[in-house]
Amino acid sequence: MDTQWPRWEVFKQDAPGKPHQAVGSVHAADPEHALLTARNVFARRPQAVSMWVVRAEEVFSWTKEEIAQDPALRGESRPALGSRPTTYLVFRKTSHKRSMTFVDHVGEVEAYSPQGALREALARFSDAEGLVWWVVPAEKVYKSDPSQETVESWFDPAKEKTYKQQQYYATVSASRPKRRKEDEAFGEGCAHC
């Protein structure tokens, strides 16, 4: 058996202005491959406008339980002499409700270590209790091309495939299934092809 490719965590943004949300992971040989695979796995349905990927080992994660049990995490941040801070992206989960997404992107912090970034995040994003926190060095995150051309070619086809939506079959009933216009249109040959 061959050795598996590295694992990449995937974040998806549903619409401009919404946060990128962790949706799962993929295995891929390089960042480009990871983004393409992420799109095929996690954006077969609308909505999506942007995706990020990061190597799983670049993600630093703490649950509320882990933070409670590690008093060192709540101390002061002490930068090493002469070191420069790094920008970290911060992600947080705040609810136990049923959901298909995990942690949401809430912002950035500057810190000298992942632990320092978590301390910063706990102080800065205190509007809601974090059940899980992720911090990720910003420079390790690879993003899908934001140009309109790429966004359209990556994410628009899913919108046209209406037969993947359950509403498309809303008229199905055991006693009298209704034939839709599209049935005929498709039967004759698809208008798009």
Partner: peptide, 22 residues
């Protein structure tokens, strides 16, 4: 979370099959 994502997609699988058999 995997199940919530899957369920949202499975409904299409179920409906297209039901429609076909009916």
């Amino acid at each position: 979370r995997a199940m919530v994502r899957i369920c949202a997609e499975e409904t299409f699988h179920h409906k297209q099959g039901k429609e076909m058999v009916l």
